[in-house]
Structure formats: C-alpha cells, structure tokens
C-alpha cells in the first residue's frame, strides 16, 4: 500500500509532468499532417483550392476517389492496373525478403561453415552503399538478364537486402545456441528447427523487416522509371508522382488528394498491425 503511494508519487513528480506535456505536444504536432491527409482526401474541389487552406474538411465527399478510380494514363492504362501492380509486387517482395533474410540470418547465426566471417563482412560492406551508387551496375545487370518490363525487375533487387539479413542475424544471435542444440538432440531437422523454433521467436524482427521492406517496395519509383518502358508494368508510386504531369488541369489536384491517402494508408495499417505484435512477442517470447 505504502509502496503503491510512493510509486505513484514518484510517477507524478514535476519533471515527469513536464515530460508528458512536452511529449503530448510533440505527438499532436506530428499528427497534424496525418489529420490533414485524411481530411484533404475528402475535400470537394472548392475546399481543395480554398485560401487560406484549412486542415479539416467541411463537406466530405467521395468524389476524389471516384475520379481516381476512373482515371487512366493517356486514356490507356487505368488506375487499377497500377494498384494491382503495386499490391502484387509489394506482397511478393515482402514475403520473399522475409523468407530469404530469416533463412540467411539463421544459417549465419547458428551454423558453422567456412568463410562465414568473410560472408558476413561482405554483407556489412554492402550495407554501406547508398542505392544511388549502385544504380548503374544494377541497370546493367537487369537489362543484361533481360528482366526489363517484368515483375522480376521490381522484386529481385529488393531481395538482396543486407539490412534485413543483418537485422535477422543480430536477432537470431540472441536466441541461445543451447535451444537449437536441445532441438538437435531431440531429433529435430534443420528445417524443423528453423520453422518451429527460430521463426516463432523472431516474430518481432520479422515485423520490423516487413515494415522496412514493404515501405521501400511500395514507395519505390526508380524501378518503374528506369526499368519499365511499358506503362502497364509501372506501380502506384510512379503513378502518384507522374500524376501532375499526365493529368491536365484542376483534376490533378483532386486525384493527388485521394492518391496521397492511398499511398499512406497501407503503411499506417502495417505499422499499427505489427507494432502491437512486436510489443506482444517481445513480452512473451521468453527469450530474455
């Protein structure tokens, strides 16, 4: 009882109140763009062009989304095609990156083999290159392999993700070796250990890698710009940036408002979904 009171008093000390007030202010400030985004997407034309601009919408309407759905580039490729491309590519790339990075992380962490340190070193070095620096070699490789205008060009470059492998290895390193050894003595195969013991324990890292990868793929414009000559193979992110150029007049503003929200929503959903999972798994994983 006394303890509880003391604890409470400790919690509501003056510096703590200041901290909470300050953090709340920062939080609200950071929320403003998101609130604006949501409201903006539902504004009718006159509100979109209102001066001074308002944050909140007065007469919400679905008109912007209707227009977006019906819109198309140069009257040929419909908006839904871009949406479809983005959905397929993001889903496959995220899944594939998780598969590859967890497997690589497991082997690099829990197996002994020749040149292991060298391989890990190479992965670390490749972490240091900014994507722009490898744009030209990447172009040469992709066009050399004849992958231009295919989904492979969208997915394969993301697959080799040193960051994801590195994160996974670091995370799997925390799982005690005795756990995999106990499983080995119990008669578990490598595949069994990987799927039934390692994967359930790496859920937080998987969540992190999914968020990072999904964002990178979903927001990627370069691939569509450089490797896709066919309009039908380009993604939503490309469409969003090209909108202003391709669509004439005031319609562009209306479409931009809607597409802004659509580009943002999946990220938000992913984040909310995995953030909770992340905290949950960290609390109950029993690793620590």
């Amino acid at each position: 009882m006394l303890n509880a009171v003391r604890k409470l008093r400790k919690q509501i000390s003056f510096p703590r109140i200041v901290l909470i007030v300050f953090l709340t202010a920062v939080g609200v400030f950071m929320l403003i763009p998101i609130i604006f985004l949501f409201n903006h997407a539902f504004k009718p034309l006159n509100e979109l062009f209102a001066y001074p601009p308002t944050i909140l919408v007065k007469q919400p309407t679905w008109r912007n989304f209707e227009q977006l759905l019906l819109s198309s580039t140069a009257g040929l490729v419909p908006f839904t095609r871009y949406l479809f491309n983005s959905a397929v590519i993001s889903a496959i790339a995220t899944g594939a990156v998780i598969l590859v990075s967890t497997m690589a992380g497991y082997v690099l962490s829990k197996h002994r083999f020749h040149f292991k340190t060298m391989i890990m070193g190479l992965i670390l070095i490749s972490l240091m290159f900014a994507p722009e620096t490898v744009a030209i070699p990447r172009y040469l490789v992709i066009s050399g392999l004849g992958l231009k205008d295919t989904y492979f060009a969208h997915i394969l470059p993301f697959l080799a993700s040193p960051l994801a492998v590195f994160l996974m290895r670091q995370f799997i390193d925390q799982i005690p070796a005795s756990l995999t050894e106990a499983a080995k003595l119990d008669g578990a195969s490598d595949m069994y250990i990987f799927t039934k013991i390692i994967i359930p324990l790496t859920a937080p890292a998987v969540a992190t890698v999914s968020i990072i990868t999904f964002q990178a793929v979903y927001l990627d414009v370069e691939t569509s710009t450089f490797f896709m000559t066919k309009e039908t193979m380009k993604t939503l992110a490309y469409y969003a940036t090209a909108l202003v150029v391709n669509v004439p007049g005031v319609a562009a503003t209306s479409l931009a408002a809607a597409i802004g929200l659509i580009m943002f929503l999946p990220n938000l959903i992913m984040f909310l979904l995995f953030q909770r999972k992340m905290i949950q798994t960290m609390l109950h994983s029993g690793v620590k």
Partner: peptide, 10 residues
C-alpha cells in the same frame, strides 16, 4: 540437460 534449461519458449 543444459545450464540455461533451453526450454522451447513457444
């Protein structure tokens, strides 16, 4: 039997 028990947490 291991020092840190090595029980499967999940």
């Amino acid at each position: 039997v291991f020092q840190n028990y090595a029980l499967y947490p999940n």
